[in-house]
Nucleic acid binder design. Sequence first.
DNA 1: AGATGTAAAGTTACCGGTAACGTAAGAACG
DNA 2: CGTTCTTACGTTACCGGTAACTTTACATCT
Lengths: 344, 344
Amino acid sequence: MADKINKNNKVSLAEVARAAGVSKMTASRVMRGEGGYSDKTRDKVMAKVDLLGYLPNRLATVFAGDQSSTFVGVSIPDLGNEVFAQVLEGIDRKLGSFGYQTVLGLTQHTIEEEEAWIETVLSWQPAGLILTGRSHSPRSLDLLRNAGLPVVEIWDLNSSPLDMSVGINHYDCGFEMGRYLVGLGYKALGYVGTSHDTANAATARLDGFAKAVADGGGTVTRQFCLHDTASYYPGFYGTEQLLASGADVDCIYYQNDAMAFGGLQFCQKTGLRVPDHIGVAGWGDMPIASVLQQRLTSLHVSHLKLGQAAAEAMVARISGEPHETARDIGFHLVPGTTTRKGDL
Amino acid sequence: MADKINKNNKVSLAEVARAAGVSKMTASRVMRGEGGYSDKTRDKVMAKVDLLGYLPNRLATVFAGDQSSTFVGVSIPDLGNEVFAQVLEGIDRKLGSFGYQTVLGLTQHTIEEEEAWIETVLSWQPAGLILTGRSHSPRSLDLLRNAGLPVVEIWDLNSSPLDMSVGINHYDCGFEMGRYLVGLGYKALGYVGTSHDTANAATARLDGFAKAVADGGGTVTRQFCLHDTASYYPGFYGTEQLLASGADVDCIYYQNDAMAFGGLQFCQKTGLRVPDHIGVAGWGDMPIASVLQQRLTSLHVSHLKLGQAAAEAMVARISGEPHETARDIGFHLVPGTTTRKGDL
DNA sequence: AGATGTAAAGTTACCGGTAACGTAAGAACG
DNA sequence: CGTTCTTACGTTACCGGTAACTTTACATCT
């Protein structure tokens, strides 16, 4: 009876087979429902499966090399930022609907963390990887090249990605907002964001923004909040610092809506009227924008859709279906009432 | 040369060993650094590891049953809710620091989704599971019992959990807020939350709240927003609906701070002064509370810490170290200016 | 009745590591 | 100088499934 219980105390297919009086192979065929057995045999086997509480060991199947795993490694910088949480939600839900599981890696925005995570997750033979960002360490690139599996780089659209890219063009985001604000007559722009050590999407937005403003003859005064996440409070005190620096600023562009909201709160607290005294613009069209008294001038991006599209690209690639190399999710500017009215 | 390349095109330990002119076993010993080889042999093997870009296949190791996997399944209801994102962040960071990986499952608040996910993730032989909530389907319970691995139920503290529990007592949260508000003289309380089909933590808070209010001789008028996440906008229109219903309400308790913020925005829009005309209280002490003009009366919970504690409990249990069955993270009420002043 | 075909099984080998055990060669010892 | 002890390896078997192949038991046909 208890002659062959594995160390894990788990029921194996062999035990089910023995209990049912058939061979392992027959039991395996029944489990997979691929035919080649009689109804009577199937019932016998399934009865024992229920009785013993047998649960297949997918590790063994994948290990045997007969099929690839259903793991997809997903690296995300951090979840304190609402937009990444939404992206992850989109990815996981969509992957789940196709029978894949997310193996999460929070990289804290560093390529070193990402590298360590990539090495670990690759050793688990994932079906593919979804990486946030387009900047990777040399060793990461080596590992990915060697592994030769599907890779989707998300967030900042990469026209020549490692494998595939899904995202938006952040430079264009910044540029469009810059052009819009300049078009409204703003000249002395401010920017409030967190510090970005590595070239990342926020930097790309700022670059695009600065270019558009410069093209329009304006200036951009930058204020970076060091060592902090791009959330409400850094927006609040970043604004305080920018204004305290004596910079002459008629409109502030924030790294995202959460920071812009923090800025709005600072303005309200200090009696600065928006948009009469100062304009405020954000990025991301985050949920909070939907309940503010004033419609925040922002740039809408569907983060959930971005995540879903990344998962779809991954699944398509795993299934061998064709998929475009770079998928642009797009964005659109949302004119709000936190900036002065255009001459529409 | 190319006599034994596996179908995955991946370099195996056997290939490294052959290239180095040693046996698989010796190469294995070198990889694990467990000794039993000469310096010369180690160098020979490592040189080939680098040359061939060998990456161990952890699936094989775990599969062989010699050690358990470093996967930990983590089920989370949704990431649209900021607090769960924070919990997940705490879990993943802490697990990662111990060398474990998070396999994510978003259950959309249903035990059916949870059940399906549990079955899948168990087939991957995880080292343990962290589940949000204490309500599980009968089959889930069967599966978990059968699997016999560490399980940490988080969020709503469970004094008699399946295995371990880390969280707070949500009933007590509600009770404390109810007692506080009644103590301030409020009598006609309102509650605005999302609908909860299943008995969950928000329901427990409401129950505790209602009890405290009833004890104090007050009443609670409930307003549920159907089919929505507990975010800003539902707080906004939930407030609108509650007040439109003609209910006489002097203070509203919200399911969380995000909803409370939505409520504050509604009040501001309609000219209801807070706290002069109506009191507002939330739950969770979310980041947004830090930048509002008025300090939101809320209840502070460290969600990040909750996640970390859950991961610590899991790791302790896996390592065979003793760990308390139920770990209470605690909370404290934050009196704000969105409710009238107490007679302190 | 013997030949042939087919459905329903069983047998064998293998995936990539590691535990357990075996062995050869040199060192240490009396 | 033979015995014993180490060190540094090599050999074998196994984890839990599945592909590929073989066998068995009948039914069907000539």
